[in-house]
Nucleic acid binder design. Structure first.
Lengths: 345, 345
DNA sequence: TTGAAAGCGCTACCAA
DNA sequence: TTGGTAGCGCTTTCAA
């Protein structure tokens, strides 16, 4: 079926080794031999068998990526960016989706380990760091994306979540909101950091969250959070004092929340100003265009890929390093209470 | 580093072959031996080296997917669905994005061929069928997704595009639109089929497209088509007779078009009713919720994966077959001119 | 500059 | 029920 080195060697009456050297641009090959081999390769449309190569080199030229949800635009962005960078350097990308399920994630990681990918990138749904022991045992380098584990010394690329929370909340404060609520995410580092930032921004104005003004996004079924955001917002609107500003863990939950607010007959942003996080691509086209903190998903993907490829190249295990991307506030109608507010800050 | 069959065999004083058989649940192994081997495998957290296995079996247990744009929700949906099905059967998925560039697509396919994936799935950006010769030469089975080539006898899974065009246009006709325009896509089968359906639906009402009422989405830079849709719509609004209904090639272009319409001071759907295609997940939250033809992206992914896995299993090359998914009209505010219009049809 | 030999980790085949 | 042998397609090493 597919041509092999041996076929080419036999055709040309030379040895397999010589052909192999031409394939890899090894210097000590005669000009004429090289030409002949290259010609024959083209004729046969030769493709080296990467499985065979991997077996002997111990490298697969493949990166493995595990995300909680490939449909979430944030992770799709990252996957795309990684894929582009990887391709540039001749690497392929094995992508899998854990559905936000820690057990499934472990299975996916096992699969990637079995395939001996050179580096694993994972936006983890684990609540503890236990699951990574397995990777470490196999000595496969890995990089955490987006979500990290405090006190766990692994490479990390993601946004500075506390800055996210501060940026969003400070913006709402600037818009004269004083009763700012927060719909927080599940118990992972991103949600914790954003909550922390939210509190710090309030504190800098000598404020604290009012009773019932921090609500958790339900975790059930609905990963991207539209439904959860809707329910959380309904809960908030029934709170002792009604919020006049709302910072949502992510954009999908903000969409759900906005639906609840509009259904309750309130105006956005006059009655409740809303800020999301993620800056999803359709924000401009929404019923009320959504202000959002941009997490620089593309940069995250690019940095993560660069780091992964650097590690993959010199098989040496570089010491773990963390890279924090700075978030950026993108102001749209959902939180612009004063016309002069610039659209970015 | 990673444990090998030989390590386990040596530890237990048995042969590699026996261990290999336990690994693959081969029947003729003594109960006790099996237990001992399994125990040791667990202790060592053994992961078979798939590259080695591939080399001897000639199968990689990997599917390859090439899409024009992983960020487009339609293709993200498909990728996710395929990934889920593949995983269920122990297959992994190599995903790459061609950026709608035929040359890049060919490169990606070469890469997948070099990796000897068992089946290639491709939503192709090729304008001719030439590029597939390469795959055929290597005897790697492949399945076209979403976009096909008339007269080319290959397996195909996708929506019935003519039905898409008819569904959308008939709906607009039911809403009493009589000057229905169409923003058509690039020169691939999907765009051609939808255009065909649009014309047929008009014809069944003894209508034909008015002059200037079929506009092409520009192809430059902007793959998902928001910008293209905006520009196309501006062009349409300047036409001899202004359209009162608009069927757009996809949802992103419909978003752009709606922006142009609203900016021109017109109302949706009263002045211009709009229908998109793809039914993207945020349609409900848009400034004007967008009516759209659902292409059943998940079904497409599922069918395509099933077919691919069936082919992968019995290495036999099944004869090419085409599977057409029926589209479904989802009516929302952007085209609902009469309150009683049901939301699905 | 070229090539013979060995071996990567696994499975297929057949003999014990 | 168990295992020896051969070999998948390639790279590495070292000798010619």
């Amino acid at each position: 079926m597919a041509a092999r080195l041996k076929d080419i060697a036999d055709d040309l009456g030379i040895s397999v080794v010589t052909v192999s050297k031409v394939l890899r641009n090894h210097p000590d090959i005669g000009e004429e031999t090289r030409k002949r081999v290259q010609k024959r390769m083209r004729e046969l449309n030769y493709q080296p068998n990467l499985a065979a190569r991997s077996l002997v080199t111990g490298r697969t030229w493949t990166l493995g990526l595990v995300v909680p949800d490939l449909l979430h635009p944030f992770f799709a962005d990252i996957a795309k960016a990684i894929s582009v960078e990887a391709r540039k350097q001749g690497y392929s990308l094995l992508i899998s989706s854990s559905d936000e399920d820690p057990d499934l994630e472990i299975q996916e990681i096992r699969q990637l380990l079995a395939r001996r990918v050179d580096v694993i990138l994972v936006a983890s749904a684990q609540s503890s760091v236990e699951g990574f022991r397995m990777i470490e045992e196999q000595k496969t380098p890995y990089i955490l994306i987006d979500r990290r584990f405090v006190g766990h010394n692994a490479s990390f690329v993601g946004v500075d979540d506390e800055a996210v929370g501060m940026l969003a909340t400070s913006h709402l404060l600037e818009q004269q909101c004083r009763r700012i609520a927060h719909i927080r995410g599940p118990n992972v580092s991103t949600a914790i950091g954003r909550l922390e930032g939210y509190k710090r921004a309030l504190a800098s104005h000598k404020l604290t969250p009012l009773p019932g003004h921090v609500v958790s996004l339900g975790t059930s079924g609905d990963h991207r959070g539209e439904k959860g955001g809707y329910e959380a917002a309904r809960q908030l609107l029934g709170a002792e004092t009604r919020p006049d500003g709302l910072f949502c863990f992510n954009d999908p939950s903000a969409l759900g929340a906005m639906r609840a607010i509009l259904e309750a007959g309130l105006r956005i942003p006059e009655d409740v100003a809303v800020v999301g996080c993620g800056n999803l691509s359709y924000s401009d086209f929404l019923r009320v265009p959504l202000s959002s903190v941009d997490q620089g998903s593309e940069s995250i993907g690019k940095y993560a890929a660069d780091l992964a490829l650097r590690i993959a190249r010199k098989k040496a295990k570089a010491k773990p390093r963390a890279e924090f991307i700075s978030p950026r506030m993108v102001v749209r109608a959902s939180s612009r209470r004063f016309p002069e507010t610039p659209s970015n800050s």
